[in-house]
Design a protein around this nucleic acid. Structure first.
Lengths: 199, 199, 199, 199
DNA sequence: TGATAACCGAGACGGTACGTCCGGTCTTAGC
DNA sequence: GCTAAGACCGGACGTACCGTCTCGGTTATCA
């Protein structure tokens, strides 16, 4: 009953879609962002430009889709914060890992590109929040709720605020390159956050 | 009487320089950033394109210079945080004012443009830190040191970290449009920060 | 019989090509040559600049092509000198007509532009000779050969030289504006030439 | 003694004037004409651009002046055609020499530049005729008048026409590169002319 | 000898056009 | 019937010169 159109058809579409997004990601990861052009993406993906414009309305949209797809398959489960029972230890592990991710130049370029698109386009920003940020935040907040339940965190804490206090300094320091992103820094952010929201 | 350097010459140079920077700022403030072109800046400033390219190596550089010049004349004095003796009240006043600034669409566009340039160019980021961010931060830290002296803030607090905890959440929420920037939010950031770094 | 190549495609290409050449000719005919710009040609033709640069390597080349195309379709038949049997009368008619053509300011500007391009570029000069000058000369020489056959011209006359003696003085006088180009002058060139190459 | 203005003063002016004209000629002789710029002339002459524009109203005018100055000092005497009593021999000598001059690439470029300026500017053309062409032609016509007196040339020949028939074919062939400029060609032009204007 | 004016070299300036590049649309040939 | 290829329009890029304007530093004359 299901697939009304030919299966090859759908698969063909999907294959070119993936090729385009992969090409976009590859180019962003390896080159200065402003050198990433639709023509280069099409060429790298072995695809005509029209095939890109058939699916996305603008260069920004393709790039953004490519970056969103980075985290495709991410769900509450897969990104759930570890839960060893020790909130501080769990947060430190996560923050250290996060800090380390930014050390990878490719990842760095990808996330900078993503932030550039988001910062300058409210529509993309909304899509980003809905598809990426909120699911991730929900997973994190689930862990925090657990901590509240066992008295490791103020019961009345605004969990969005907790996440901001925890992550935003790291994000800002990375975006502005205003300081080192090392384990000590990650730890101190956890410490500060826990002190601020201690029960 | 004074003017030691050639007066007309320097004045001419300076006048065109200011005209260029003002034109750039005006265009950024009133149009979508990607529509700001060197040609438009030159036309608005009543200047040849070459006069722009003689001084700055690229469009990014002009735009960045224009944005840096926004805060020209800013010094420790002029941006010093108020000091009424009540740290919490002072910080709340400052944070509320900061949050309000972002409500102005022109200011919003200017700062987004600035952040876009900074985020994608390490050299500009360094210049930004040196010329703008650090002086401002120093002024703020001076107030915090006063607070430490009178026992309103932990003596061993890392003041850079204090500023990050205070400002980064606001910055991130603004950049990602992930929530309202109202007085309540400003207040809560102050509250959190003071709790985290209470003596 | 019909169009072997893709019809629409060729037609599109051909249409824009003709629009460009027509725009170039129109501009040359109506303005001082040095004011003819590629941008103006593109605008007048309703074409992007790149469409011009895709086909021709430089402004000179477009202009030259436009001027060559002036005489497209010209062949031995269409430009054959009249043949009433009276060589002197035929040549006088042709020379008077030629002299008059130069009186038209548009034509004058076009031919001056053509000569400027040719004079300063050996490659264009070769193309001009092959595509324009030689076919025209052949047609003229055919008439002269007829005259030789009926004893109105020396049998051993170098026909290229005959044409030069006939036309070059007119050409030089026009190019240097060194004298009037009237019917009397046309007639005297014919008279001189016939005397020089009388049997 | 005489010199009313300061002698050094005049000499300074004259020196820079000569430097400019020499630089212009040198550049025209060695480079493609369209690459000759006022800036290059000024630099080569060791002179400010303003010094050029103080004296000539436009680039064309400088270039033209430089080319006219090529023949400075030329007068009726110095360019008089040889007069051995044998008109044919004298003309052949002159025409062969003329043809040879064009073989020098530098000379070729200079004369092409001169013709380009003349062809596109009626004012410069008039100046050229008055200052260069007519004096030279007068010298040549003096020789022809001598030939008329001794019965080597028709008494009623229009001497301007004689000169045109003699020179214009060579000029056109050179300008259009439509054939070799060798001694045989020079000779045949003389032969044709003498036949056309034989008494 | 020192002051003062004329002049020059250097080169920045407002403009205009160059030839290139790319975004987004449209056409064509081929699978 | 959709695709890869790529031409097309539009318009910004950064560069090169034009002809003008300003500057600082000689020169050149006269006190």
């Amino acid at each position: 009953m299901s697939n009304e159109k030919g299966p090859d058809h759908s698969r063909r579409k999907e294959r070119s879609r993936q090729a385009i997004l992969a090409a976009a990601r590859a180019l962003i990861a390896e080159e200065a962002y402003e050198k990433v052009t639709v023509e280069a993406i099409a060429a790298r993906a072995g695809v005509g430009k029209q095939t890109i414009y058939r699916r996305w309305p603008s260069k920004s949209a393709v790039v953004f889709a490519a970056l969103l797809a980075l985290s495709e398959g991410v769900d509450g489960q897969s990104v759930a914060l570890p839960d060893t029972g020790d909130l501080e230890a769990d947060l430190k592990a996560v923050m250290r890992a996060t800090a380390q991710e930014f050390a990878d130049p490719s990842f760095d370029r990808l996330i900078r590109a993503l932030n550039t698109e988001i910062a300058n386009d409210a529509v993309l920003a909304a899509e980003y929040r809905e598809k990426l940020a909120q699911p991730l935040d929900e997973a994190k907040k689930a862990r925090l709720r657990g901590a509240q339940a066992v008295g490791q965190l103020r019961t009345d804490a605004d969990l969005d605020l907790v996440l901001e206090v925890l992550y935003a300094p790291l994000f800002q320091r990375w975006l502005h390159r205003s300081g080192p992103l090392d384990a000590a820094y990650a730890d101190s952010l956890v410490a500060v956050t826990l002190r601020a929201f201690a029960p």
